[in-house]
Amino acid sequence: MKIPIITTAVAAILVIAAAWAVSEHRRTHHDGRSGIPAAEADAPPEFALTASDGRSVTAASLRGTVCLIYFGFTTCPDVCPTELGWMMRTLRQLGPIADAVQPIFISVDPERDTPAKLSAYAAAFHPRMLALTGTPDQVKAAADAFGVVYRKQTPVSQQPGFYLIDHTMTTFVLDREGRIVHRLASADTTPEQAAAMLRALAGGAP
């Protein structure tokens, strides 16, 4: 059988197009939680929050530093410690370059996560981890800026004031311009892979 050259060419183009389409879809949609393809999120997310030591921290005050940002709450049973542990393993992979990366935990539970609780929680994970909170409105605005969603669950205990919170479990990587350049999760990315991404961003002179 003889296949005309034009047909072969068309077939080759289709092969490449299909491979690209699938890979592109995976790249931009692997994080079903955020739904925003990384390439489209060029505008840096803006926020104004308060660190557990009382300092005011805004997106602008973090410009010039590569940041790892994770939203959660200190009484989270499994997801937060898992993802923050993954963040710490990533930083340990980086060696001395880790000093150029700012780990940040933003509480989605301003009602219960007092500055004292946040300080102790952050210190248990990393001596330089910044724990941020704010008024419920400030926290909501920050979460919206990142496309993070959170919602109180129905109570799982009779104990007053006890509740869990469903929340986005993405770790955001911000470059020195404050743009979101990666959306990561421990289930998809190894600490080694995440460290390679951070090395590319933070490895050079600031």
């Binding site: 047909t7 289709l14 299909a18 491979a19 690209w20 995976r26 790249r27």
Partner: peptide, 30 residues
Amino acid sequence: PRPAIIAIVLLSLVGGAVGAWLSLPPSAAN
């Protein structure tokens, strides 16, 4: 011709599979 169409379909499938494989999350490593 029909063989050409079959070839295109097959090659597209292979291409898709290759694309999918290239971008598989490394969850198996965990």
